[in-house]
Design a protein around this nucleic acid. Structure first.
Length: 175
DNA sequence: ATGACGATGCACT
DNA sequence: GTGCATCGTCATG
């Protein structure tokens, strides 16, 4: 749901105390050909059809992990977390990802999962319990929207959201 | 049983 | 900008 994806920009996401402010998200739902839930429930996407407020973690390109937050309302809706502003646990992030510039630690869905230590072990887990911690935003951010990244269907749906002007996005915002 | 294809990231030109 | 690693998942036969 796009409203949830927007609402998550500016919130803070931590896993075992490591993380930062969410600066980029994408929305997916069941009526969306780009969504893993489009073809109905399967073993992989089961968490998307489970209760809201849980994590959906999937493997991307056989290599990376990606984190989604499952939404309420119609089943099969979730928000992909695409980038964070690294702020807490920078030592842990660097030990997992190497001595990169801070701005590169969480810029991209696979990168942020590596930096935060997110794997399929967290698939289906509640987001309101350890190791997760979600902290509400303290100010109303200016949000830019545009087409989602890396999909071949549903390209016209502008369900990518980012903190306007941020240099921490996985790619510059367009649209 | 098998093949096509990724909600990506990195190295390289 | 381009090429490609790498393997689970799903659709098809």
């Amino acid at each position: 749901m796009a409203a949830v994806a927007r609402a998550l920009i500016g919130t803070t996401l931590l896993v075992d105390g490591v993380g930062g402010m969410v600066v980029e998200t994408e929305a997916y739902d069941r009526n969306d050909p780009a969504s893993h839930s489009f073809r109905g429930p399967t073993l992989r996407n089961a968490a998307m059809f489970g209760p809201p407020g849980h994590a959906y973690v999937y493997r991307s390109y056989g290599i990376h992990w990606c984190l989604n937050l499952v939404c309420g309302g119609e089943p099969g809706a979730a928000v992909l977390i695409r980038a964070l502003d690294p702020a807490f646990g920078l030592d842990a992030m660097h030990s997992r990802r190497g001595g990169l510039p801070v701005r590169d630690l969480c810029r991209g869905p696979g990168r942020l999962c590596q930096a935060l230590g997110i794997t399929d072990a967290l698939n289906g887990r509640r987001l309101d319990e350890a190791p997760f911690l979600l902290r509400p935003r303290t100010a109303e951010p200016v949000i830019a929207a545009g087409p989602r990244i890396g999909i071949s269907q549903g390209v016209a749906t502008p369900w990518r959201f980012g903190l306007a002007g941020s240099r921490l996005l996985s790619r510059p915002m367009r649209g």
